[in-house]
Design a protein around this nucleic acid. Sequence first.
DNA 1: ACCTGAACACCGTTCAAGT
DNA 2: ACCTGAACACCGTTCAAGT
Lengths: 230, 230
Amino acid sequence: MAFTSVWLREPRKPGGPGRSREEIVAAAVELLDEEGLDGLSMRKLGARLSAGATSLYWYVATKDELLELAYDQVWGEMTVADPDKVGWRDAVSVLAHSMRQVMLRHPWLADLLGRLPALGPNALHVADRMRRMFKVAGFRGSDVDFAGATLTAYVFGMTTPEIAWNSAMGETGDDTEEMRATVRRAVAEFPEMIEGVDMNARADPRAMRELSFDFGLVSVLDGLERRLTT
Amino acid sequence: MAFTSVWLREPRKPGGPGRSREEIVAAAVELLDEEGLDGLSMRKLGARLSAGATSLYWYVATKDELLELAYDQVWGEMTVADPDKVGWRDAVSVLAHSMRQVMLRHPWLADLLGRLPALGPNALHVADRMRRMFKVAGFRGSDVDFAGATLTAYVFGMTTPEIAWNSAMGETGDDTEEMRATVRRAVAEFPEMIEGVDMNARADPRAMRELSFDFGLVSVLDGLERRLTT
DNA sequence: ACCTGAACACCGTTCAAGT
DNA sequence: ACCTGAACACCGTTCAAGT
């Protein structure tokens, strides 16, 4: 009914007997990394902690709360540089690359971003530092938020399809050759698309994605920088 | 095992007795619009077509195939302008706004983007035309794809959180006042964030999101344009 | 060719009951 | 304070059987 989040209510007092929140979250992240979002069920997580499936409900009101916790946990892996030392453009750039790497390391993140509120301490810390970066750059007022939203939208939007591609490939094995043939067939009636598929035929897809990410990131940063000079 | 998609195999010959694929897809989109991704189950969709839950498996191999069909269906709602007539920047801009509107109209799209392959005719048509736009702009080689990826990443990444916000608000009712208070509490230790929350306190959130989207879109377009002048 | 119902192996969550 | 098992109301998908 009301807007809720794990972070908006008091947690169980830690330090008692029984499992700790950290233990549970760590196990959840493990399971998510191994089996993906669909692989995480309360029963499986319970088993991994050698507990009954429903014991978890003592620590967590709902599965979504558990996901919020796991979510914030990995936000802690982001690298935030100090814009006063390295300059805002480098700081933002490092953060963007770091966000991408964390997402690639935890592919289930893509499914959660934008679906869950990001009010955990780690997520807030990153957001706080990012605001700082754009203020150092010279943005003022709402533009600070707009710039931040633009940057994260880009990174998130660029990395999500990359993850999907990875996992599609992971399941298929690396028969890139055969699948390119089928894609070419699907694309047969679209002249521009044929050109695109053919052009990328002999490129290394992994390297290509790095190039693409950097191309877009530079574009976004240039475009943001332009907002400052008027 | 192998990489699959509805679009890569022959459909049931249409025109026979029984339900048509269009009928089923239309019902699926309806149900998705009304109840969201979690609201669509094979049983509910079957009921809506006054059929047994499992009858659908005659037309569709799996639920994901059904989603692929619904997915491509709404790609058909995108507005694609002719860059030779209106210029590449306007054409891209119109497409970007259109993508956002379609996503807001079908919030479940956000959950599917990047999760499913987009090999349907409507999605390919849009991609084809977008490639055209960036070629008219002057991009060559892989840069055409990079520019397209950047643009769609931005729109997708920007609109996904907007949808999440909308649905969170939809469930809560519009007690924006109370929830801003709780957010402020969560954010208490992060000085930059406090400023951000306070600043936006009396702004109309809906108008704010339009502004934010346009700010970012102009930035992305400026940044892309800059790639052309070197 | 098309549709059905029963069945299988799962889910998240509640709750009374145990220690 | 913490944990359990049984139970409820769901899932997607398979398959033998019907018309």
